[in-house]
Design a protein around this nucleic acid. Structure first.
Lengths: 107, 107
DNA sequence: CCTTTATTTCTATAATTCTAGAAATACGGC
DNA sequence: GCCGTATTTCTAGAATTATAGAAATAAAGG
C-alpha cells in the first residue's frame, strides 16, 4: 500500500461521523445496512450521510450494492485489514526497540 | 478508547505529510529524532513541520523532550497500539461473518 | 405515466486546514 | 548580556471540509 493511500483511508476514518458510520456498518456484518437505516440509526441528515458515505466509498473502505430502491452498504474487510497491517508494519519497522507485532492470519 | 479519541488520532495520521513524519519517527526508534533532522529529511518548511507535529502531539501519538536547544520527538508506541487494537476490535465486533482478529501481545 | 420511497446532487454557508514567510522565543555558550 | 542555533508563534491566503435544505434522480408498483 502506498503511503498516500494509507493516509487517504485514515483520513476517511478520521472523522467522528464517518467513524460512527463505519462502525455501524462493521456491526451490521455481511448483510450490510441500507443508507436509510444508517440515517435512522445515526440521526444524520440524508445529504450529510450521503456526503460521508461517498468519502468512505471513494477510498474503498465501503462498498454499495443496490437492491431495488435501497442501497446497501458494506465494509470492505480485506481493505481494512490491509490498512491495519500496513499501520502495524509501519509502526514497528526496523525493530528498534519496538516489540514487533503482526495481525494474526484470518482463520 | 472513546470513538472521538480514535477519530482524532486517525485524523492526525490521515494526512500524507503527517503520516510521513510519523513513519520517520517510528523508524528512528527509541532514540527519537530532533525536529531539525525531520525537517532536513522530509524537506518541509519549519513552520509547517511545527504545525503538523503539534497536531500529532495534541492527540498523544508523538511526545517531545527537550535536549538543550533541540527538541527530540518520539512516537508513543503504547498509544498507537491502543489505537490499532481499538480499530481491530471495532473492525470485527459481533463476529458476524468477519474473522475475529487481535493484535498479539507484546513479547 | 404517475406516485411513493430511497438516495444523490446542487447550492450555500460557516468553519477548518494547509502552507510558508516573517517575527518572536528558547536555550546554551561565551 | 549578547550571539547563534533551534523551534514556535503570528499572520495571511488558498483550499478543503462539514453541514443541511431544496431540488433532482432512481427504482418499483400500480
Amino acid at each position: 500500500m502506498k503511503i498516500e493511500d494509507a493516509a487517504a483511508r485514515l483520513e476517511a476514518l478520521g472523522n467522528p461521523t464517518r467513524l460512527r458510520i463505519y462502525r455501524a456498518l462493521v456491526r451490521a456484518g455481511e448483510e450490510g445496512m441500507p443508507v436509510g437505516r444508517l440515517q435512522d440509526r445515526l440521526d444524520i441528515a440524508a445529504s450529510t450521510l450521503s456526503h460521508h458515505l461517498k468519502a468512505l466509498v471513494a477510498v474503498g473502505l465501503v462498498t454499495q450494492t443496490r437492491d431495488g430502491t435501497t442501497l446497501i452498504c458494506r465494509t470492505n474487510y480485506t481493505l481494512m485489514r490491509g490498512l491495519l497491517e500496513y499501520m502495524a508494519e509501519e509502526c514497528c519497522a526496523e525493530g528498534k526497540g519496538c516489540a514487533p507485532f503482526k495481525l494474526p492470519k484470518v482463520a
